[in-house]
């Protein structure tokens, strides 16, 4: 177990190097002038493109540029992100908590509703709940997630004005930035409660509901499907029949005996969803103008913000590797039949 974890953790630096080399190599296909264009903020500077290329060494061979970047990294400097207008490391620290918070608010309803609906569908196979949940899952997969986002935005912001886009309203934002407000966890809703400001909690929550609702709809379909098939598999097994033969009440058989074993594949899936959400909420964050890491990463890619893009790619890859490792450990912890080696 310990060696397994250690070996997987040794992969971390490899992944970090791999991802950054990949991104660096990709960007080398652009001409130095294209890459220098990012630093131009004023049309008058266009004449200085050559000077910019020389200053940032954009015409040097790729390994020289990568080496310069590595030397900076060794000093904890990920470079200046032009899109975020702050150092890349600060940008990661600023945007990641917002995404983490959003992910938590997506994850909890996805798991709770998904498990409940999946179990119901399996227990009442071929009845209304089953057909409904399957139809629901299939229709959600039928449209790109940004369409669902636009529909949510149109209904709940355009018509009802319940859930505005962005992170906070103006007055709440001003208060949060004042010295009176302490950032304990950097998760806005948690900090609001810790500061004893329920109105900020409500305000932050209203801004999260839109993107969260969109992604809950999209992500839940998978959980329902896997829970259902896993549950059907377990319900066929002998020990469930034994439990029923003993005269146990049906809820006890379902909830205490069957569901525990049916959950094993679901746990892996949910942890993968959690990790995926941390890096993959680009579209929802963009639609709802939610200042998370996905929106920033997409902007950085659009503007070819090289330090931003590289830093984002490396960070998300590391989060993914750590997350998958946690999923594996969790998997072994709940299922004693699995031994990690």
């Amino acid at each position: 177990m310990t060696t397994f974890v250690a070996r997987r953790l040794l992969l971390l630096p490899l992944v970090a190097f791999g991802v950054t080399i990949l991104i660096f190599a990709l960007l080398q296909f652009l001409t130095p002038a294209q890459r220098a264009a990012l630093f131009v903020t004023d049309p008058r500077q266009l004449s200085q493109i050559d000077a910019i290329i020389r200053k940032y060494g954009l015409d040097k061979p790729v390994h020289v540029q990568y080496w310069t970047w590595l030397k900076q990294l060794a000093q904890g400097d990920l470079g200046w992100s032009q899109t975020a207008r702050m150092p890349t490391s600060t940008a990661l620290a600023t945007f990641f908590p917002a995404t983490l918070e959003l992910t938590i608010y997506i994850f909890i309803p996805v798991v709770l509703i998904g498990l409940w609906l999946g179990t119901k569908a399996a227990v009442r196979k071929d009845q209304f709940v089953d057909h409904f949940s399957r139809f629901f899952a299939i229709s959600l997969r039928g449209l790109p997630s940004f369409v669902w986002g636009l529909i949510v935005l149109m209904v709940f912001y355009g018509w009802l004005n319940w859930f505005p886009p962005g992170r906070l309203s103006l007055d709440a934002d001003l208060f949060v930035k004042s010295p009176e407000f302490h950032r304990y966890t950097r998760l806005m809703t948690v900090d609001a409660l810790l500061n004893g400001q329920p109105w900020i909690f409500v305000d932050a929550l209203r801004h999260i509901v839109g993107p969260a609702m969109t992604l809950v709809l999209v992500e839940m379909a998978l959980i329902v499907r896997i829970t259902r098939s896993s549950m059907l598999e377990v319900l066929r097994q002998d020990y469930v029949r034994t439990a029923r033969a003993k005269g146990l009440a049906e809820p006890v058989v379902i909830n205490r005996h069957a569901r525990k074993n049916a959950l094993i594949p679901v746990v892996t899936l949910t942890s993968l969803i959690f990790v995926g959400l941390l890096g993959g909420v680009v579209l929802a964050e963009t639609i709802f103008n939610y200042p998370g890491i996905g929106k920033w990463g997409a902007e950085a890619a659009v503007q070819l913000d090289i330090p931003g893009v590289t830093g984002f790619g490396m960070f998300i890859a590391l989060v993914t590797v750590v997350g998958n490792l946690a999923a594996d450990i969790l998997y072994a912890a709940i299922d004693p039949r699995i031994r990690l080696q």
Partner: peptide
């Protein structure tokens, strides 16, 4: 490695 980078990005 390819799977650990967000696809859309």
């Amino acid at each position: 490695l390819m799977l650990s980078i967000p696809a859309l990005f």
